[in-house]
Design a binder for these strands. Structure first.
Lengths: 259, 259
DNA sequence: CGCCAGGTTGATTTCGCTCAAGCAATGTGG
DNA sequence: CCACATTGCTTGAGCGAAATCAACCTGGCG
């Protein structure tokens, strides 16, 4: 249990001693929406604050449950899932240290529309909804920070829609690898790089909307084609440009022949 | 061009005489984000306001273009599209009278990530970005209204992701018809109803992420199965419950056999 | 009249899913 | 320590839904 918050986040500045400190002293505060608040404003959040550690697999809130407040990630990684009637699930996005979680339900239905599940050991603060709403009503900057967050989430959700519709599985996996590279890169040299995947195969499959079997097969294809080498959760890519080529390949320009 | 703003919106209160009036006098204001503003605040928007009418097919803003402000729908219907490299496009959502348009780019990149195209004759106001930002910084309620809007958009985008991944084309068309029914219903009696589609077949296909050919075939299937009758843009559904059945049918409970 | 975009239909292909089995790593209880 | 269950991952065989390719039809319009 040495340093559980170091999970590829790069910052690696979160230690056990954050345990129980106030928001004002929180090490990830600068990255959060709360960074726009004054000391006095921050203090109003303290009474309704609860910090908790979640083990991998534990759920933080469930789809359909009423939202009583906002969660704020201190460390670890959480997956936002959405399930359909048949139990089929999609992994919509990953949430890391410094990000808010479940803020949306506070604004609309008061009911969570997604499930949040810890994917690694995670420390998460819960902040009381009423206190947050009071601050939102008073300080415009706070709402704007959340608005930016929502705008980014919306952007990536729309990207995902387009991706799932237009790209092949190969292209979607290539895209996923490139996205994960930004955060989970281990080493890079020229056109080649290495990274450690933060997700199981199943979860990677759920991220691009395919079955685990298809993930296996596509990974094997990538290896056979010399695109990437997978050893457990570590991936080595020799030539990143090959990966980039995959993105457009499934739907190349329709050879604009004049007449 | 008698009454161009009556497009199934139900309200039907927008007429040509709205032309050139102020925001304060705007007939759709009560439904907009601006409803939380005082008369004085509204007045600050006037200098940077431009009202324009768009013909069907005209684009209001294009993916990649810089955003200089926010658009506000007075009447008509606009489609939000997103294109991929190969020219393949998806219709992400429809925007109607009283809704803001292109507000997201103002908050993040300052660059539009989607294209907005008038689908019917539409009247749209443009509001200067700097003026809007000034108000956002002053009045928390305005930001919260936009935040609610973004939260709803995000919700439906995530629903769409799940839908495209888990539901069959049949189920997705059934779902689309049920969604369109809410707004474009013509008449209803018991389990049966009639409506007039606001979209071409191509655009309906683009909404659920399929090719036009597949849309044709699925419509024919629906007719053969007695689910719905299509005559051009009018649809008659005899038994709405049949349509509802389609939603879950593609992925029914996996027969939870104990042991 | 000819042209053209939108829509329909048919034939064929292909990509990813389903179903099924097997395997390695891990845990568990006797 | 072993027998056994469990879980995550992989692989194979076969199927089926939707895409692709291609032709044709229709109505609107210059």
């Amino acid at each position: 249990m040495g340093r559980p918050w170091r999970n590829g986040d790069g910052a690696g500045a979160e230690h056990d001693r954050t345990c129980g400190t106030t928001c004002a002293e929180c090490e990830v505060r600068a990255r959060t929406e709360w960074s726009v608040l004054s000391r006095e404003e921050l203090a109003t959040l303290e009474p309704g604050r609860i910090t908790r550690t979640y083990l991998p697999g534990e759920t933080i809130f469930q789809e359909g449950a009423p939202a009583h407040g906002v969660h704020c990630m201190q460390g670890g990684m959480v997956g936002i899932r959405k399930l359909d009637v048949a139990g089929n699930s999609t992994l919509l996005r990953l949430v890391h240290a410094g990000e808010a979680l479940g803020y949306r339900a506070l604004l609309t239905t008061n009911e969570h529309r997604t499930t949040a599940e810890a994917l690694t050991l995670s420390r998460v603060c819960f902040l009381d909804g009423a206190a947050v709403r009071r601050l939102l009503a008073r300080n415009p900057a706070l709402g704007l920070r959340f608005l930016e967050h929502a705008a980014r989430d919306l952007e990536s959700a729309e990207d995902k829609v387009l991706q799932n519709v237009t790209l092949s599985v190969r292209a979607r996996l290539a895209h996923l690898l490139l996205v994960l590279k930004d955060r989970y890169l281990v080493s890079e040299r020229g056109e080649s790089f290495e990274m450690t995947l933060p997700l199981s195969r199943q979860d990677m499959a759920a991220m691009i909307g395919i079955r685990p079997e298809s993930m296996s097969r596509t990974i094997r294809q990538f290896q056979q084609d010399g695109l990437a080498e997978f050893h457990g959760r570590s991936v080595r890519v020799d030539d990143i440009t090959c990966l980039l080529d995959e993105l457009g390949e499934s739907a190349e320009f329709p050879t604009e022949v004049p007449h």
